[in-house]
Simulated assay, not measured.
Amino acid sequence: MRNATVSRDGGRWYISFCVEDAVAEAAPNGKRPVGADRGVAVAVATSDGGLYDRVFASPGETARLKRLQQRLSRSLCVHGRNRRSKRRDVVRARLGRLHARIRSRRADFAAQTAVRLVRDHGLVAVEDLRVRNMTVSASGTADRPGRNVRAKAGLNRAILDKGWGGLLLALEHAARYHGATVVKVNPAFTSQTCNACGHVARESRESQAVFRCVACGHEAHADVNAAKNILAAGLAVTGRGDLAAGRSVKRQPPERLAACTRLSHGNPHL
Rank of each mutant, 00 (worst) to 15 (best):
V19M: 05
E20A: 11
A22P: 02
A24D: 13
G30N: 12
P33N: 00
A36K: 06
D37P: 09
R38L: 14
A43R: 13
V44R: 07
A45D: 10
Y52L: 15
S58C: 10
T62G: 09
A63F: 07
C77E: 11
R81I: 09
N82R: 15
N82E: 14
K86Y: 07
R87C: 07
L95P: 03
L98P: 10
H99R: 14
R103Q: 14
A107H: 02
D108V: 02
F109T: 01
H121Q: 09
L129C: 09
S137M: 00
S139R: 04
A153T: 08
A153C: 03
R157V: 09
R157T: 14
L160R: 10
W164S: 02
L167Q: 08
L171E: 02
H173F: 10
R176M: 07
H178C: 10
T181F: 03
V185R: 05
C194Y: 08
N195I: 02
S204Q: 09
R205S: 05
V210K: 08
G217I: 06
E219I: 00
A220L: 04
A222E: 01
K228R: 15
K228F: 03
I230Q: 02
I230M: 12
L235I: 04
V237G: 07
R240F: 00
G246V: 10
E255I: 06
A259C: 12
